[in-house]
Design a protein around this nucleic acid. Sequence first.
DNA 1: GCTACGATATCGGAAACCGACATCGAGATG
DNA 2: CATCTCGATGTCGGTTTCCGATATCGTAGC
Lengths: 125, 125
Amino acid sequence: MTDDGIVRHFFSGFIRLHILYHAAKEPVFGAEITEELIHHGYRLSQGTLYPTLHQLEKLGYLQSQTRVVNGRRRKYYRATASGKRVLNEARGKLHELVAEVLEDHNRDFQTTRRKRHDAGTEPKL
Amino acid sequence: MTDDGIVRHFFSGFIRLHILYHAAKEPVFGAEITEELIHHGYRLSQGTLYPTLHQLEKLGYLQSQTRVVNGRRRKYYRATASGKRVLNEARGKLHELVAEVLEDHNRDFQTTRRKRHDAGTEPKL
DNA sequence: GCTACGATATCGGAAACCGACATCGAGATG
DNA sequence: CATCTCGATGTCGGTTTCCGATATCGTAGC
């Protein structure tokens, strides 16, 4: 099993995007997000989740509204216009990442590294 | 383009995956990675890149080999078996994220109009 | 020697991370 | 109406990460 504590560095951005995405779709609150993320295989402690939400709100990507549901106080977050803009920017990057990492396994390396003039001397390991 | 300085938190994981992916495909060195990432729209300073590479090597995901090319000392990195395992784990998560965030791209603007509808009641999950 | 330059490495203050712990608040119970 | 319950939000502190600026390293050419 891969150690989640270490691998987490790879996924903190993924988690934020999950949050932004859901908040763009409908109002969401903290505990609900935690469950949703667990369902996706992420573990996000409260000590990370809530500061993250506060941060995203402070940055203007989310906006909150407190409601009482079933006798419990919940803070619902939804994405602002600015948050949706970031989400769209992320979609672009996500698309590129997927194109590389998921899709063309068999194709040749076609990025700009060939612009370097030292090609022939690269090691083949 | 939105402010990269703020948005960066979303993408640090993306960057690590780009690195892992390329290192799994062929040996890569720091300065080359920087160019590659710039081409994808990321900005990664040397003060972040090299510690990140050291970290990934220390974790056992990368393994380095120093070579001299065109009179320059380069440290080539390639992914280890463990690194490839993490990469595959990331592929799974990436797939899920894409399924959510990219697939129903068209629906995310109409939700803004629902404001009156769910006032005082529990918003639909 | 020493200079040029590509490439790697470090430093330090600020920010993020996260497990553990603390607090809040509406309803139920009596 | 005091207290308990429990879902939910919030905070703390030590550790790790971030990153611009700066330093160092190493080879070729002189």
